[in-house]
């Protein structure tokens, strides 16, 4: 068996159950640590799979470039709080498939926190961004759907408001709220909703005007140099 596959099995069969068992028995606010540990452990298989398969130099650089664009794209746009990161992660997921979408999302979250300061929310951000990239990758497996700008924008909006946003807000429940229950969960989701909507609108805007041209550019690069062809 390949080393990476073996490690993935260890994560699921040993690491996760042990974490859950220990997590159930620690008192106080232990659930934050348990939650963070589980999120990190769930990220490990993705990273290990990426390590395990022999990644071509071209693919590696393309992933790095997409992440750097998602992080650095912010300086181009003169409007504060207008982030291009989600749009670029979503487009990477669509163009290069769920797995690369996940990697671009998770690494983007990690790297952008090196510039804006790491926080207790870093693992949650990595998970949420990665999950966003992965989900769009699955939604747009059908190539014909990609042509419709309005569909791109709509899916982008829904993914940010109903998927990435709530995942990010859930970190607040574990971190700041005194207890984990329905009320605190609802409070965190409601307080995060306006920000999620504004981010969703930004993402939809960028995807509507810019999604198809960018996808075409990525397709052209893929076709011209034969990157990441199955």
């Amino acid at each position: 068996m390949k080393k990476s596959n073996f490690m993935i099995l260890i994560v699921f069969l040993a690491l996760l159950p042990i974490t859950l068992y220990v997590g159930m028995h620690i008192s106080g606010r232990g659930y934050y640590i348990t939650g963070t540990a589980i999120i990190v452990e769930l990220m490990l298989p993705f990273f290990m799979r990426f390590e395990g398969r022999k990644v071509e130099a071209r693919e590696l650089v393309v992933v790095a470039v997409l992440c750097a664009l998602a992080v650095g794209g912010r300086v181009v746009i003169p409007v504060p709080n207008f982030k291009a990161a989600f749009a670029i992660i979503i487009i990477s997921g669509i163009s290069f498939g769920p797995e690369t979408g996940y990697m671009v999302g998770a690494i983007t979250a990690l790297v952008s926190n090196f510039f804006y300061g790491q926080g207790p929310y870093t693992p949650w951000q990595m998970m949420a961004y990665g999950a966003g990239g992965m989900l769009t990758g699955f939604i747009f497996l059908n190539k014909r759907m990609r042509k419709e700008s309005w569909l791109l924008a709509l899916v982008g909006f829904v993914i940010v408001v109903a998927w990435i946003g709530p995942l990010l807000d859930s970190s607040q429940v574990f971190l700041m709220m005194p207890e984990v229950n329905k009320i605190t969960f609802a409070a965190a989701l409601v307080s995060g909703f306006p920000i999620n909507v504004s981010q969703g609108i930004c993402t939809a805007f960028i995807l509507y005007f810019f999604g198809n041209p960018l996808l075409d550019k990525l397709e052209r690069i893929k076709l011209k140099y034969g990157i990441m062809e199955e």
Binding site: E56, A57, R58, E59, L60, V61, V62, A64, V65, A68, L69, G73, V76, I77, A84, F210, P213, L214, K217, L218, I221, Y225, I227
Partner: peptide, 16 residues
């Protein structure tokens, strides 16, 4: 951003 993406992707292939 679009111009930047084109330039960056072409460059990435050269680097790779």
């Amino acid at each position: 951003l679009g111009a930047l993406v084109s330039w960056a992707l072409e460059n990435s292939v050269v680097t790779g």
